[in-house]
Each structure stands twice: as structure tokens, then as C-alpha cells.
């Protein structure tokens, strides 16, 4: 049936034109997507500081920018990488533990205040993190967190703010795991913790994997809060550090080091992009399970 319709449509002239039009549209979309990406890729191989280039492919190409990032004593790239990895890993572990516990409670138990709790989560999930920006800043300075414990403060903010939305997401997934399994385990004498670790969590692995990935990504992607809280350049995360290449604050505001930014950004963007492309199926199911988070 499908086959017949296709050949029937393609045979007519109108059908051919339409198909060509659709391909043309997709090709234009893909060029618009790829052109800036190619441009930054080539820029990262461009050794010259001058950005004047009337062609996409620079005349001279080498790995100078990459070598500079890793070997030059002036480069803090490895330090930023270390800071970002540290923050991301801690956030990932803490968020996984806290979110899976709260989601389990909301999915499996009836308790007083549950509806109210869900309502609060709903409201907090909608509110942008920027709605507490001033307070983050003022409180952080007040308590000395900005001055002395910037990383710990950042981690606390990332983890705490991730809880409402992600609890919803994981709860949505857990709701689909049959409760009969829990009940059977309880009948066999398993306590709540045993049921949680032995029965529910193994079945929730897919959503936990998505969670772990996102928890790891959030700190890598965040610029605003990190910029607001980090004062000491030694503590810069990748996002804040890379931005300094382009904003010019690193070299006294005189020269933009776009080619170095390009190299540093690609090194971090490439593994992330590959993860997204390979895991797109799981990411989508993770998105639709909770159904609400943008």
C-alpha cells in the first residue's frame, strides 16, 4: 500500500517537484547548521591571531592552538578542565542519590503533605534559577562562600536546584515500574531500603543513566551562576575560562583570542556532542517520561 502510493506520487511531475523542494529545504537547513560549526573547526587550526579571513578554509593550518592550550605556562586550560570535572562528578553523584530517594518517596508512598510538596516542586521547576541570582550573590558574599568556598557553593546550588524538575522526571519513570514487584519483595520480608536498592533501582537504570548524564552536563553548560560566584581565576570552570578568551579580559582587554577559544571549545564540545548523538534515543525517552522539562 505504502509502496504503491509512493511510486504513484513520484511519477507525477508535481510529486517530483515537491520531493526536490523538500530536499532543497533540508539541504539549506543543514548548510545553515554546519557552516558556523565548520568555521569554528577551521578557526581552531588557524595559527594566525588575525581573524580576517574571507574564505572558510584558512591558508595555513596547524595544531598550534591545541598545543598552546596544553603546554604553554600561560594556559590555564588543564586547570579549568580539572575544576569542571571535579564539580561535575560531585554534582552527578550527589544528585543521583538525592533525586532517586525523593523520587522513590513520591512514587511509592502516600504521606501527608505529598500534594503540597508536588505543587512546590512544580513552582520551583518553573522559576528560572536567575530569580534567586541576587540572593545567591548577596548570601554567598555574606557567608564568605563566594570568597572561600566557591566550588562547594556552586555544587550546592546546582544540586539543590536540580531536585524539583528531576524528581518529577524520575518519579514519572518509577511510576511505570509495577508496584506488585515491591509488594512481592515486602512479602518476602524485604525492608524498604532493600526493596529500593535491589528491586526498584536496577529497573530504573535507563532513567538513572540519563540523570547521571544531565547532572554531569549541567555544571559544564552553566555560565551565569559560575560567573557570578567565582572570583578567583584559579577556580574558573571551563565555561567561565573559555569566555575569558573571547571577552578579552585575559589579555587586558586588547586582543581577542578566538582561535584558542575555538580549540578549547571543540575539545570539550566534541565528546559531549558524540554522547548526545549516540544516546539520542535514551535522551528522548528521558525527556518524554517526565514530559515537562525543557
Amino acid at each position: 500500500m505504502n509502496e504503491m502510493r509512493r511510486s504513484g506520487a513520484a511519477r507525477t511531475r508535481k510529486g517530483v517537484l515537491r520531493t526536490a523542494g523538500m530536499y532543497l529545504f533540508l539541504i539549506i537547513v543543514c548548510i545553515v547548521i554546519i557552516y558556523p560549526i565548520l568555521w569554528i573547526v577551521f578557526a581552531s587550526f588557524n595559527p594566525s591571531q588575525s581573524m580576517f579571513s574571507s574564505t572558510l578554509i584558512p591558508k595555513e593550518m596547524n595544531l598550534d592552538n591545541y598545543i598552546w592550550l596544553f603546554t604553554d605556562p600561560e594556559s590555564d586550560y588543564l586547570l579549568w578542565l580539572k575544576n569542571s570535572m571535579k564539580i561535575s562528578l560531585i554534582v552527578m553523584v550527589l544528585q543521583l542519590i538525592l533525586v532517586s530517594f525523593t523520587a522513590y518517596a513520591y512514587s511509592r508512598f502516600n504521606f501527608r503533605g505529598k500534594k503540597f510538596g508536588l505543587l512546590i516542586f512544580m513552582v520551583l521547576q518553573i522559576l528560572p534559577l536567575t530569580s534567586a541570582m541576587i540572593a545567591f550573590y548577596a548570601l554567598g558574599i555574606l557567608l564568605g562562600l563566594v570568597q572561600n568556598h566557591a566550588h562547594a557553593y556552586l555544587i550546592a546550588i546546582y544540586v539543590g536546584s536540580a531536585i524539583p524538575a528531576n524528581t518529577y522526571l524520575v518519579k514519572g519513570y518509577l511510576d511505570n515500574i509495577p508496584k506488585e514487584l515491591d509488594e512481592a519483595a515486602h512479602l518476602d520480608g524485604a525492608g524498604n531500603f532493600t526493596t529500593f536498592f535491589r528491586i526498584v533501582m536496577p529497573l530504573a537504570k535507563p532513567i538513572l543513566a540519563v540523570q547521571a548524564l544531565w547532572a554531569f552536563m549541567t555544571p559544564l553548560q552553566d555560565f551565569v551562576i559560575a560567573k557570578l560566584i567565582i572570583r578567583d581565576p584559579e577556580l574558573n570552570t571551563l565555561a567561565v575560562g573559555l569566555q575569558s578568551f573571547v571577552s578579552g579580559s585575559m589579555t587586558g582587554g586588547t586582543q581577542m583570542q578566538f582561535t584558542k577559544f575555538a580549540a578549547g571549545s571543540l575539545l570539550i564540545a566534541l565528546p559531549i556532542a558524540l554522547l548526545y548523538v549516540f544516546l539520542q534515543k535514551y535522551l528522548i525517552s528521558g525527556l518524554t517520561a517526565g514530559g515537562t522539562k525543557g
Binding site: L94, I97, L98, V99, F101, T102, Y104, A105, Y106, G117, L124, A132, A156, I157, V159, G160, S161, I163, P164, T167, F196
Partner: peptide, 13 residues
């Protein structure tokens, strides 16, 4: 089991 998560959320948000 909710307490740690809710505490973190309360303090941070």
C-alpha cells in the same frame, strides 16, 4: 529518605 534532598533544595533554592 526525602529529607536530604528537600534540605538541599531548601537551602540552595
Amino acid at each position: 529518605i526525602m529529607a536530604p534532598g528537600l534540605l538541599a533544595m531548601t537551602l540552595a533554592v
